Simulated assay, not measured.
Amino acid sequence: MNALDLLLTRQSMHALQAPGPDAAQLDVILRAALRVPDFQNLKPFEFVVAEGEGREKLGALMQQAARASGRAEEDIARAPKMPLRAPLVIVVIARAKASKLVPLFDQRLAAGCAVMAMQMAAFAQGFAGVWRSGWPMHDDNLPALLGLGADDRIVGFLYLGSATKPYPPLPTVDPAAFTRRL
């Protein structure tokens, strides 16, 4: 698959199963994340990989955060199962770095680009995945449970594995509907 085909055919898949990426494939995925645009080469991100029992640990932290945040009982009960929806979950964190030149917003954009690069690298290797957000990403308690600082943010949960069903046809979208010229 060439780079343009990859960019033009990538899509998210929520229905995931084993196998997920092995150690060598995960290494490629993580290396792709380290190649994103990153002014001043700050590498303002961290990747928390949860696979195997790590997914259960992540689910327990999500449940603890849900309780501490006073979320609905449904969310509290569902939280430990959330990371089990894929064989591999990568929590992508924007780790703030002190810089007089690179605003915090730019650093968070770089971390967001890292999520996309990882999903593309997984897709290129034949895996499926989805970049999830939801309440855990915006929760006030989960970052502390993950050891994050005050300016650090979770920018996404990348769920990776093998698709359990075929991808739906890609819709045709006209770029003109989203473009204007000056």
Rank of each mutant, 00 (worst) to 15 (best):
I93S: 03
V91Y: 08
K57Q: 13
V36E: 00
A86C: 03
P80F: 14
R35L: 03
L101E: 09
A65L: 05
P80G: 11
E73L: 10
V49Q: 06
P44Y: 09
E74S: 06
R78G: 06
A86T: 00
M82V: 11
A77P: 12
R85H: 06
L84D: 00
A65Q: 09
E73P: 02
K100T: 01
A94Q: 05
L84M: 07
S99F: 11
A72F: 09
L88V: 15
P83W: 06
P80E: 10
A86E: 06
S99V: 05
K100H: 08
F39C: 11
R95Y: 07
R35T: 14
V48K: 10
N41Y: 15
G54W: 02
F39P: 15
L88T: 14
N41V: 15
Q63V: 04
V49Y: 14
N41W: 04
L58Q: 00
Q40A: 13
V92Q: 14
L58H: 09
A72W: 08
K97C: 06
K81S: 14
V48P: 04
R95T: 14
M62Y: 03
V36K: 04
D38K: 08
L101K: 15
I76F: 05
M62L: 10
A72V: 13
P37C: 07
K43A: 13
L84C: 00
P87Y: 12
K43I: 13
R71L: 13
S69A: 15
I76M: 05
Q63A: 13
K100P: 08
P83E: 06
G59W: 02
M82A: 11
S69D: 12
G70R: 11
V49E: 04
A77N: 11
N41M: 05
M82K: 08
R71W: 01
E74T: 05
A98D: 09
K97H: 04
P87W: 06
P87E: 12
A65E: 01
F47S: 03
A66E: 15
A72H: 13
M82P: 00
V92G: 10
M62A: 14
A60D: 12
I90H: 12
K97P: 01
E46Q: 14
A96N: 10
K97I: 08
P87N: 12
Q63H: 10
K43L: 10
F39D: 12
V48R: 11
P44D: 07
K100L: 09
K97M: 14
L88A: 11
Q64F: 15
E56K: 12
N41P: 06
L84H: 07
R71M: 10
A77Y: 11
E56W: 05
A66Y: 06
F47T: 09
L84R: 11
P44V: 01
P87F: 08
R85V: 00
A72D: 13
L84V: 09
L58W: 02
F47Y: 08
K97Q: 15
M82H: 02
V91L: 09
